[in-house]
Design a protein around this nucleic acid. Structure first.
Length: 469
DNA sequence: TCTCATT
């Protein structure tokens, strides 16, 4: 699906972060390189027409059957299909090129596939470019190799707890007895030192399995705290999962930070400050390779002053299906990026007006405190009372109230405290004055992950529900 | 201790 199709869904928070950051970077790039007179501004417009042209060519003439489709990495994001075609055509006629792009933003992911008409041209290009030529602005040379076949992941091993003294050839030697090695890479830091782990891809899955059987935990290498690890490398899905967990961990760090008591005024200045917002987004997105490293350091500290009151904001932003607050609008506006998000859970919430948003938060915080101060639990009508389980240990009545206030008028919020220990039992009740708000809160917050646990948010059983008659 | 990217 193209990013400029009319029926586009509201972008996920992840995509928004990417979009926002890319837009910011793009603006900087344009400013910095205004003398270059490059055409990166019009990339998106060119995209559709160029790929249509490619499609037309594909129908007319087939490449040789033994040609190799190549994957090409370390491509500047500013290069489009036309730029790349020009580069590759030095090595032979190019059948097709496609730049890998973010589905939502259309921004290049910094890599592409290229298919030459002949195998020979593909290999010539690889010879001339792979680890040889470094494209403008890149810190590493072009990486060019046959595109991954679908089953590559099940032939690819991750090797951990490897002595840092071993180089690629040492690792190859170690694994050579189990089958043909297609690729072997030792992971290194920027200084070129081994990170103590490697990837080894065998030509067959059977070889990979043999290597695991024979080598996993077979020895403890020099300088390693645990025996050698040999296992299948993470799949794309697993990496995505880990990334999500990292996001939640960052959210959790923000919430569990010691400075939980914040004044209501603190929130809107944070949002109105572009640099801080960016850092907040980075911390929540688990960081991104796109981002300058120095901005990432200390992001958790920056998050701390936000406090628990904004769990719902964080929840909304990291969970695409639930977006009760339109923070994206505000940030987009602040960065000079036009974006429209029409989620409007409650009337008036979809405003792009920063001051309105600030006062919403302020009111919510004050209300939350007031509700918590009311003390004991009040029941709403049937269908308006929620049972919430897996709350963070430190969560207070006020936190609970402010978490659920954006979904509607909360008349009561109570975390249950163990009488013996005075500690939270990690569950509580929230009551709204209407059932719709309760349903919206369930839709948005049930399953929201904090650390390794997920909030359980469901209707509290009606008082007489347990009675069988 | 999972690469910068794999439609």
């Amino acid at each position: 699906m193209s990013f400029n199709e009319g029926k586009m869904l509201p972008p996920s928070f992840e995509d928004f972060v990417t979009d926002y950051v890319l837009a910011s970077l793009a603006m900087n790039n344009n400013n910095n390189s205004s003398t270059n007179n490059n055409n990166s501004n019009s990339n998106n417009n060119n995209l559709l027409s160029s790929s249509q042209q490619n499609n037309a060519k594909i129908e007319q003439e087939q490449p040789d059957s033994d040609t190799i489709k190549m994957f090409v990495g370390q491509v500047p994001r500013s290069m489009d299909e036309n730029d790349l075609r020009r580069m590759f055509e030095e090595y032979g006629r190019v059948h097709s090129i496609n730049v890998l792009r973010d589905k939502t933003t259309g921004a290049s992911k910094g890599c592409c596939f290229v298919t030459f008409f002949t195998r020979k041209a593909a290999l010539q290009a690889q010879d001339a470019l792979h680890n040889v030529k470094t494209l403008n602005g890149m810190h590493h040379p072009i990486q060019m190799k046959p595109a991954d076949s679908e089953n590559r992941n099940e032939r690819k091993l991750f090797v951990g707890m490897l002595s840092k003294k071993l180089c690629e050839n040492d690792v190859r030697t170690l694994f050579s007895g189990y089958g043909t090695i297609e690729e072997c890479t030792v992971l290194r830091d920027t200084a070129g030192n081994s990170k103590g782990c490697a990837f080894v891809t065998f030509a067959s899955k059977q070889s990979a399995l043999s290597a695991i059987k024979a080598l996993h935990q077979s020895q403890t290498m020099e300088g390693c705290s645990a025996p050698l690890v040999v296992k299948f490398a993470d799949t794309q899905k697993e990496k995505e999962l880990k990334r999500q967990q990292q996001i939640q961990a960052n959210v959790w760090n923000a919430l569990a930070a010691p400075q939980l008591q914040t004044s209501p005024q603190q929130f809107s200045p944070v949002l109105s400050n572009d640099a801080t917002s960016l850092q907040l987004l980075q911390a929540m997105s688990g960081g991104s390779a796109l981002l300058p490293q120095q901005l990432l350091t200390g992001a958790e500290n920056l998050l701390a002053p936000l406090g628990v009151q904004n769990l719902v904001t964080l929840a909304a932003m990291s969970q695409p299906t639930a977006a009760p607050l339109c923070v994206a609008n505000l940030l987009g506006k602040g960065a000079g990026v036009e974006r429209t998000l029409t989620t409007g859970l409650q009337t008036g919430m979809s405003t792009s007006d920063l001051s309105t948003y600030g006062s919403l938060i302020t009111n919510a915080t004050l209300n939350a405190a007031a509700i918590a101060a009311a003390g004991k639990q009040i029941e709403g009508p049937d269908g308006c009372n929620l049972f919430i389980y897996h709350l963070p240990q430190e969560f207070t009545d006020t936190d609970l109230a402010s978490t659920f206030l954006p979904f509607g008028p909360v008349i009561s919020a109570k975390v249950f405290i163990d009488k013996q220990t005075n500690l939270s039992k990690c569950f509580g009740f929230v009551s709204f004055d209407n059932a719709t708000s309760a349903q919206q809160a369930i839709a948005a917050m049930n399953g929201f992950q904090i650390g390794t646990k997920r909030l359980k948010v469901q209707l509290k059983r009606a008082k007489d529900a347990s009675k069988p008659y």
